[in-house]
Amino acid sequence: MQPGIAELLAGIREILERVIAPGLDDPYRATQLRGVGETLAALESRWPRELPRLMRENDEFAALLSDARPVLANLSGAPPDDERAAAVSPPEDPSAYPDLARLEARNRELRRLVSETIRALHAAPPDPERDALRTRIRNLLAATLRRRAGD
């Protein structure tokens, strides 16, 4: 369907810059409009990557929390086993078409559990298995940050 999302975003930005901006005499409003244009430009490059990024990140967080189960079993402050199990289990209908809102909600829950896991590991005394898990979490988070930046 035309215009596509990319075309629409680029077109809106172009109209703001070509039609609206030159008519703004107020420097404050002109500055704010520039900020809106920059955000639209960032959105143009971000949106095509968002769905696969979330799907991959969710799969990786779920695998990490699943593998971490033995380490976290008796660790004080770690997320409860049933919460982890519910979050890492695959979506109800894996063949269903990806739904952005559902992916974002799952991502948020998985990130919450990873945050709690980091806090629990940090509070615990050093231990080779726990240290290895902490390193794996750091590496995974570093990779997700690189992907968000589009690397």
Binding site: G35, V36, T39, A42, R138, L141, L145, R146, R148, A149
Partner: peptide
């Protein structure tokens, strides 16, 4: 807000580099 603030993760990424996690 009068501007669309968003966090693209670049600060977190920089901090990860600084603490040797990236």
């Amino acid at each position: 807000a009068d501007r669309p603030w968003s966090d693209d993760g670049s600060l977190a990424r920089l901090m990860f580099q600084m603490i040797g996690a990236a």
